[in-house]
Amino acid sequence: MERERVKDLEAIESSVYEQTVRYYQKWSDRQKTGKLLIHGEERDFQASRQGFVKFYLSPLLTDTAVSSWAVFEQLIKRQSGRHNHQGGIIIYVLEGEGLTETNGEVLEWQAGDLLLLPIQPGGCTHQHWNKDPAKGCRWVAFRDMLVAPYIANTIDQVSDTPDLRGAATTLSGGVRRKDWKARVTGEQAPLITHPDELAGANLFDRLLALRDIQRARQAQATWMIRGDELPWETNAHGKMQWFLHPCIAYSAVQTNTFYRQEIPAGSRSGLQRHGGDAVFYILEGDGYTEIDGVRHIWKAGDVMTLPSLATGVIYRHVNTGETPVRLIAMERNLVHTVGVDRHSGFEELQSCPEYRQAKAS
């Protein structure tokens, strides 16, 4: 009898349910103990067929708290390799000027611009060129690794970068997109707001109608956002430019929110309760991010992350230098499904000094 009871206990421990419990516990422990701040000098550029790439975050890097993003820099001397993968990736240009050819269209970009590779049948076959090889150019890219399996993302290398091996190639002479300010349809599929409205409604047809609206919007959407042409807003959290937002419909990628923030010397952002799983790349300046009372000191070229905790996190950025801090921030856009509050609530607990001054004047 005792032997059978021991066997039952062993069976329980090896059950899929118990393994699932341990899986989530291990993930939760990683959020609490993993590295939140990744200094730029901790990661090296590695040679690859696509070019010289430095990964800050990746599911293959297990020392970080956040594992659901791939965040990497690429250095382009002359031109990258050419490869195909599904879209949904966003690229922020850190320095230099260049061109990107994707699926027969050519985008010209410069430092401060955001490139968007759309999610579409067949993915995006693309390659990047540096306009001035004497200076070089560099950008940082963000890939949502939770969305990647959902869109069946794979990477197929078409040709190698001539910066390492392979022959240099030229632009194919595709259509050049010059005006990034696209206007898209604001049409929406009607919502069912009460169960009684289901009678007589054909929801499958509405799904097809929604598909057609999304196709039309994607055909009109912009693949690049010019950072130097975006307005700045001062809100409770700070001075920001919004590149991607749940209320912005004209961008070819809708799976992320993305903004650039500037914090004056000696100042700080607002104090915010947040669900976590956000990524900040420090563009300029020195300071720290305070998360639940703990300071994480950073400088330009570092990546700061927020862990995903059941209670959320309370954080703010502080500029300790004599020049403005500039950073870019990126997180997943699920506000229309999971909600802005998510699991922890979303609140600005204390406004930044500049916003309080503006409200008082």
Rank of each mutant, 00 (worst) to 15 (best):
Q157Y: 11
D163P: 03
D156F: 04
G200K: 06
P162N: 11
L203S: 04
S159A: 14
D179L: 02
R177D: 06
H194E: 09
A209V: 05
A189I: 15
A182N: 04
Y150N: 11
G200V: 13
V158N: 05
L146W: 12
A201T: 15
I155W: 03
A152G: 09
S172D: 09
V158E: 11
I155C: 10
A141W: 02
V184K: 05
V184T: 05
A201I: 12
G173I: 07
L191V: 15
A209K: 13
R176H: 10
W180I: 02
A148G: 02
P149I: 02
D179W: 01
T169R: 11
D179N: 15
W139Y: 15
S172F: 00
T161G: 07
P195F: 08
A148S: 15
I155M: 10
L146N: 06
L164P: 00
A152C: 09
K178N: 10
G173R: 03
D196K: 04
W139F: 15
L164D: 02
P190G: 12
G173P: 11
T170H: 05
D163F: 08
L171S: 10
D144T: 02
G186W: 08
P195K: 07
T161H: 06
T154S: 14
S159I: 03
S159K: 01
L208C: 07
